[in-house]
Computed example of a mutant assay.
Amino acid sequence: MASPSSDETPANGKRGLLIALAVLTLIALVTGAGIGYLLGNTVEASVSARLASAPGDKDAPQLRYTGDLAIKDLKPIVVNLAAPSSTFVRLEVALVFKNGALANPDVTAAEVREDIIAYMRSLSLSQLEGPSGLQHLREDLNDRATTRSQGKVTELVLGTMVVQ
């Protein structure tokens, strides 16, 4: 029987495997760091280019409402939903419009209020659930107010909504 050579002992095999794993780990580390560095520079360059191309003063706050605007609070609206009919909703809303755009803001407010009541009576409770339901309600009420006022109402602001 031939004796095993010193290169083929189990201790040398494990040592070689550990060295190979260490080298592969080092290569993966260097490769990952290099790719991260390159991608980081690419993202930084694209953000810098986007900020440089943006018009306007970057330090000035962006105002949502500018100009001569007026606000008209509507009377609180309490209405039951279509399903379940025992569920009631209380809304407090306000109309935002350019000052002088509406000949009689009280009449427009009453008309918008009637539209909201009719719309709310057609909804079910499941349509109001969650953040997306609230967002859809805001958008639908905004559309109704804009349509009713022939585009003179800038926005309908939903102050509070209580579902009971």
Rank of each mutant, 00 (worst) to 15 (best):
N104I: 08
A22D: 01
G56R: 07
K152H: 07
L39P: 01
T31K: 06
T160W: 04
A110Y: 05
A110F: 03
A28F: 08
G16C: 07
A109L: 05
A2G: 12
A103E: 14
V96H: 12
I117K: 02
Q150D: 13
T146A: 15
N80L: 07
L26K: 01
E139D: 09
P76V: 05
E111W: 04
D140V: 06
E44P: 00
L26F: 08
I116V: 14
S149F: 01
S149T: 03
L24N: 07
V78T: 14
R90I: 05
L158K: 06
V96D: 08
V93S: 15
L134Y: 05
T108Y: 11
D106C: 10
L51P: 00
E129S: 14
G130I: 03
I71Y: 02
T31A: 13
P10C: 01
L156I: 00
D59G: 11
N99E: 14
L63A: 11
M161E: 01
T25W: 10
N99H: 15
E44Q: 11
A118E: 13
L21R: 11
E139Y: 01
G13L: 11
T87V: 11
L38Y: 04
A109P: 04
S126T: 09
A103M: 06
V107F: 12
Q164H: 05
K58P: 10
G159V: 00
V79S: 12
L156N: 02
S46G: 07
N142D: 09
L137G: 06
L29R: 10
L158C: 05
L134H: 10
